[in-house]
């Protein structure tokens, strides 16, 4: 048996603890160990961003982070966005504005958008397009993604949210 390492992290508000191979990527840890399959793998060179998650609140590509590097940290995946009361404003906006087609890149794109809105609650169209540099969508041509992010920003501003709240993860 290869060398093993113990990792523990808070994922969507829940504590997790596992013994894994040190080389295991965070994205595989989430998908295979925790069965959180909402985070997808679209490439192997860190370009596509389908695997983007929040690590201590910052967007990272989970295919480029080892699970052991996330030890002791807090992770939010797409599964942590909605609450029992309903969809997160970013999800709602993607739905309203048709910001997804096949839905494969969508979890990563929404998380990347949350990263932007946390830093800039009122981004211009151009700022949104630049902030999506780290994600690739093959279906939408991005226009409705941009509209969705704009709409989410407005919703959040109107609700007086300064920081994009995570339904379960941040509260827990």
């Amino acid at each position: 048996m290869a060398h093993q390492a113990e990792v523990s992290m808070k994922v969507n508000g829940a504590e997790s603890k596992s013994v894994i191979e040190p080389r295991m990527l965070l994205v595989h840890y989430l998908r295979e160990e925790l069965n959180l399959t909402g985070t997808h793998i679209g490439c192997d060179t860190s370009q596509c961003g389908a695997c983007t998650v929040l690590l201590d609140g910052d967007p990272v590509k989970s295919c480029t982070v080892l699970a052991v590097q996330a030890n002791g940290k807090s992770i939010t995946t797409v599964e942590g966005l909605a609450s029992k009361e309903g969809l997160h404003p970013i999800q709602m906006s993607f739905w309203e504005k048709h910001g997804l087609q096949c839905g494969f890149c969508t979890p990563g794109v929404m998380i990347a958008a949350i990263g932007l809105l946390n830093e800039n609650p009122d981004p211009s169209e151009e700022e949104i397009r630049l902030a999506l540099e780290g994600v690739i969508c093959r279906c939408t041509g991005y226009q409705f993604i941009v509209d969705a992010v704009k709409h989410a920003a407005q919703t959040l501003r109107e609700a007086g949210e300064t920081k994009v709240a995570m339904a379960d993860s941040m509260k827990a």
């Binding site: 797409v78 599964e79 909605a82 969809l87 999800q91 993607f94 739905w95 997804l100 839905g103």
Partner: peptide, 10 residues
């Protein structure tokens, strides 16, 4: 189809 895909339940 969206609520499923938007919540990671696809």
């Amino acid at each position: 189809e969206d609520p499923r895909l938007l919540t990671g339940n696809g």
